[in-house]
Amino acid sequence: MTIIYLLLSISVIVALVFFIAFIISVKKGQYDDVYTPSVRMLFEDELVKPESGKNQSLNKVKSS
């Protein structure tokens, strides 16, 4: 049953790792703005074909 020491220390270490990750994330300012990233992640990374994008927006206007 002394295995419990090992298990305990592993569980505490895992908890501590997450805890430290949390502290670092606060320190880096990840909690200062909790809204913008939720919008940012929905943006396209790059416009693959700017041409088609242009046409689309043109069509939109025409149809509206």
Binding site: V12, A15, F19, F22, I23, V26, K27, Y31, D32
Partner: peptide, 17 residues
């Protein structure tokens, strides 16, 4: 503002464990 997050985080962490 951050200090409260730290406090809360530590309390929550300890509470769970």
């Amino acid at each position: 503002g951050r200090s409260l997050i730290y406090r809360l985080g530590i309390a929550g962490f300890a509470f769970g464990n």
